[in-house]
Design a protein around this nucleic acid. Structure first.
Lengths: 215, 215, 215, 215
DNA sequence: AATGAATGAGCCTTCATTCAT
DNA sequence: CATGAATGAAGGCTCATTCAT
């Protein structure tokens, strides 16, 4: 993980480094992302970078961790509400994720790409864990007594897969339907403003409905 | 696309070249895949390769085309059967795809990876079309009169997404559930034999059920 | 020089080969010109080419020879006319050369480029001879009794240089003044029609005047 | 242009790099010159070179700039002298140029070659400007009131061409007449000492005379 | 005789990382 | 401690030429 020298940087500088790195990895993927490019863009000394992170992979691991924390779902609070409906939890979760990704295209794009880089041997270990843990968390929620009885399918694992992947493809779907150019948004680093909550909710309503009652 | 000189090779040599390339791209992705590595493994001269394909991207395009043809679904015949149920079509399709991928881990792994490389600017043009066309085909089937009335959701586009992505994640799910190491299978190039049709059908039954009636 | 097999080709095929080669060398110069490109453009078999010419340099030598013959000046007839003025000979020569180059941009461009490739070690031997011989011929004309007395400068060698190079730079001058894009003309292989004889003569008049009486 | 890292090198190292590069480009021309060769000869690491110059073309541009500055004519001072004769200016200029080229065969050879590489599409942009600007400067001098009246030809553009190209061919002429092997001199990197100022002046006298009163 | 497959050295360039200062 | 110079393997690709068929 990141070295102490990185933690000692001013929050502003840290954020600059993180954002620039997010953008590079989001745009090019792990292998093609260029440390040299990041370093040049930051006006950093080559050596300095290696005093913050011990390797490219180390930086990548840090970014995954950092991005995950930022997009941490607020599921916990939700789940604990008495009498809450399972599908309401999912709806909220979908909405939060999509909202976050549209408002933070760089981080959203980064995490999206990370999820699709599980096959890359080089970083499979970093992502495999994340992927597995997300599935497992979803699964454990499903297995809560109060939710379990709301579901028809008893195999919680496959249901978790379905829920998790639907959340993943919602990102694709929105991009496809509204012809959003994520690459461009990442480059410009600007939030995708042109999608109202109403529209967002309509998309999510349909997907929740599919989840609930099938297509 | 491939040059004439490639077509003139013996079928055995062609297949060697194709398989070695599939494996390299499946294992490392487009950018990181190394032509030099492929060429070395094939015992080719550097220059010889470029008499078969005019560039790395050209080879990649050929492989996508070739793999797609090999895994071509037999949907057409199915659809035309009188009185056929929509979900039966999907089930058959899921089964064929999974079966194919398990028996041809190299090609399956290649195509899986291709689908997730849409973000790669370099090859987005090759893949974007494929991705879009698969969605569109799925959508057009859904819109057939005889199937439309079997569905609750009227937005055929989002349904197509759901169906398509479920088929995609089934691959992930099987790997996850049965702890299949695709990387290893690709390297060894051997079919994944240890999954019986019975097991396969069980997985697919559940997923079709989710599709039909929700989770 | 060219091999016998080349001579046995039909005149049309020979001409095709020559013209395609002229264009390639004119456009890119000796080193950068690509035999592969020429061969591809001609739809030739690689091996066939080497049955016509034994090497790239051999082809180049043949082209120089061929182009030189085509642009052979008609000086001889002119010189023998009784009472002819030296400057009239030069004027005619300049006019013929420029006219030829404007009407045959490919060959003109080729020869122009050849003249400037004397420094290239690889082909210096081919061009050095040509260059020297042109100077020597010019010099020998100057030394004819009937012309010698018309000149102020007794060093015929330096005068020959001056005359020869002026003829060379006239090509540059016309291109510069009339913004002629030789590259484009070579690619299109079309005569440069937009320069009338009147204009041509005006340019040549001035240059002859400079030669005769100084600037 | 050159990167900062190059400027930080010791003057000696910089000069080594420059001279080695001059020689390579002078000997082989832009396309055929090999960066690998230069780098090997300098005992550099491949990557180190690219910390000095961002590309082959960048190095070439730098060399052109550097060589031009070294051979900068002292015309300005000369022109401002009251009562100076135009032909005296030219004579001085010719002398300086030739002297410089004979004493610095590598740079002279480099610049000579550069001037003849205008046709090379790859670097035409670098050279076209230089070529045009030299002509234009010459032309503007000619158009100075105090010089204009000394000339017979009113078309200053064509006169500028004549003057500029005569200066160019003087280099050729000297090589031709004294059988100087520039290639060999460049390889050996040694000044061409065997031409006395007396001889040089004789050549220039004749050429100035031709310019003044014709041949 | 004619073909076109094969060759492999060589090209320019980029990369993550190290380490002396 | 911070710097930035140095590294050299590896990348994709082109080339003129050879030679078995």
């Amino acid at each position: 993980m990141e070295l102490l020298t990185f933690q000692n940087l001013s929050p502003e500088r840290k954020e600059e480094i993180i954002q620039t790195s997010f953008a590079e990895f989001a745009l090019k993927g792990y292998e093609s992302a260029s440390l040299s490019e990041i370093i040049k863009r930051l006006g950093l000394a080559k050596g300095s970078f290696y005093r913050y992170f011990s390797s490219k992979k180390d930086l990548y691991a840090y970014l995954i961790q950092n991005a995950s924390e930022r997009r941490l779902s607020k599921l916990d609070n939700l789940i604990e509400q008495p009498g809450i409906d399972f599908f309401e939890v999912i709806r909220q979760n979908f909405f939060d994720k999509l909202k976050f990704d549209l408002e933070n295209p760089v981080i959203g794009g980064f995490l999206y790409r990370v999820m699709h880089e599980r096959d890359n041997n080089e970083v499979a270990d970093l992502i495999g864990g994340l992927y597995t843990s997300v599935i497992k968390i979803t699964q454990s929620i499903i297995e809560l007594d109060k939710f379990k009885k709301q579901l028809k399918i008893q195999d919680s694992e496959i249901v978790a897969f379905q829920v998790f992947h639907m959340q993943l493809w919602l990102y694709d779907y929105v991009a496809y339907k509204y012809k959003i150019d994520y690459h461009d948004n990442i480059k410009r680093g600007q939030p995708v403003l042109n999608l109202s909550d109403v529209e967002l909710n309509r998309v999510i309503d349909v997907s929740i409905s599919m989840l609930k009652n099938g297509i």
